[in-house]
């Protein structure tokens, strides 16, 4: 599952697509207005619904269309990682990267490397664990 901000990262991902770069098809991308719009709830809900990893992308620092959104995102990300770790979830399952509108290639590489990380970690059992009360 990937959350991409509309202004830079989604455009970057689009570029990866239109330039016909090869990248792993495992990622479902969701476009949001700004990385600052990505609430911790979105990430937790994605895991709860069965995502094995969550990728968050925004504009490079200083380039956010709404100025401060990506800094907010960065702080949330750091906090979320600490929280998921306490919950016994590998923090590597959440990744934040800055992707600009011209970085189609970087996006493709990122998707490939993140997919690789998640494959190595194996499937995430959050969904099953949360659904069955024992």
């Amino acid at each position: 599952m990937a959350f991409l901000c509309k202004w830079c990262s989604y455009t970057g991902a689009d570029l990866a697509g239109t330039s016909r770069m090869e990248y792993k098809p495992n990622v479902h991308a969701i476009r949001v207005m700004c990385s600052g719009r990505i609430e911790p709830t979105f990430v937790l809900k994605a895991f709860r619904q069965g995502a094995d990893g969550v990728l968050i992308c925004g504009c490079h620092p200083g380039d956010c269309h709404y100025q401060e959104g990506n800094y907010k995102c960065l702080r949330r990300f750091h906090l979320l990682k600490r929280y998921v770790k306490q919950m016994g979830i590998e923090p590597e399952r959440i990744k934040l990267e800055w992707i600009s509108a011209s970085e189609g290639k970087q996006y493709a590489e990122l998707v490939n490397s993140f997919t690789q990380t998640i494959t190595e970690l194996g499937p995430c059992h959050i969904k099953e664990t949360m659904e069955v009360l024992t």
Partner: peptide, 12 residues
């Protein structure tokens, strides 16, 4: 999810 909302507030 109050914790998620709180994380968001703290980050702000």
């Amino acid at each position: 999810d109050p914790g998620a909302k709180m994380m968001s507030a703290i980050a702000s």
